[in-house]
């Protein structure tokens, strides 16, 4: 299958290892991967902070960049959630019917990595080997916007060598929330403090998730505390082999 990568701006800039893992994984599964280099940001930062008008050109840009691809896959539940749930709203704000039509045509072709593997390809065992103790944090947008359910866990359970441990109170938000983490930093930290306690209670060495945005938040605090736990994107675990 021909797959266009929607790598997302912060993965491109800060977490390129996640993108490289995606390429490795999808090619190993026999797919041809393309990276449309014109891609930038989906506009979620602007939209969620209230800058809806400013999100309009970014939605236009995304549509223009990906219009010619049949299957678009991203390693971010949050960015895919933006496209799937809120692009129609941005198009409505723009008052541009053409854009609304283009969005409606494009949205069903955009997938998050784990839903693409499990629900679209029907693959659970991706041939990965990862001999580490891992706990999985289901991010809010993977749970409550994309409704990924247990797709990420089904993939992780099939990884050889993995010691997968359940995260207590897993479904509660880690406190990231985009600009919330800066605008309401104290509340964000209070939420993060409780999430960290849950992560540390599992005695896992790795905290995995389907969103590097939340992992940047969780991992940033683990790093600051020298907690001895690292935050790693699901794609990197699935790409790892013996």
């Amino acid at each position: 299958m021909q797959i266009a990568l929607f790598i997302t701006c912060f993965n491109d800039t800060i977490f390129p290892q996640t993108g490289r893992a995606m390429v490795q994984l999808l090619e190993r599964l026999g797919h041809r991967v393309e990276f449309p280099t014109a891609q930038t940001c989906c506009g979620q930062i602007h939209f969620n902070t209230g800058y809806q008008r400013e999100a309009i050109p970014l939605v236009r840009h995304f549509v223009a960049t990906f219009a010619r691809y049949q299957v678009i896959v991203a390693p971010s539940a949050s960015c895919v959630g933006m496209v799937r749930e809120f692009y129609a709203r941005v198009a409505e704000v723009s008052g541009d019917r053409r854009l609304a039509a283009d969005v409606a045509a494009l949205v069903p072709r955009v997938f998050e990595l784990s839903e693409f593997l499990v629900h679209k390809l029907g693959v659970e065992d991706v041939g990965a080997y990862y001999p580490h103790r891992v706990t999985y944090h289901p991010t809010c947008h993977s749970l409550r916007v994309l409704h990924l359910g247990d797709a990420p866990l089904r993939l992780l359970r099939k990884v050889r060598g993995i010691d997968l441990v359940e995260l207590p109170n897993a479904e509660q938000c880690c406190g990231f929330g985009g600009t919330f983490a800066v605008k309401n930093a104290d509340t964000s930290m209070a939420m993060l403090g409780d999430k960290l306690r849950c992560v540390l209670d599992t005695r896992a060495e790795v905290c995995a998730a389907a969103d590097n945005s939340c992992l940047m938040h969780i991992g940033g605090a683990l790093h600051r505390q020298r907690a001895g736990v690292r935050a790693i994107h699901l794609a990197e675990i699935l790409a790892a082999t013996e």
Binding site: I14, R20, T37, A181, M216, G219, H223
Partner: peptide, 21 residues
Amino acid sequence: GWTAMRDLFPVADQTFREWWA
């Protein structure tokens, strides 16, 4: 507010698009 409790990971030495190129 970010760095009060969290470290931030910097821009990668090689971005994904640079690696791809």
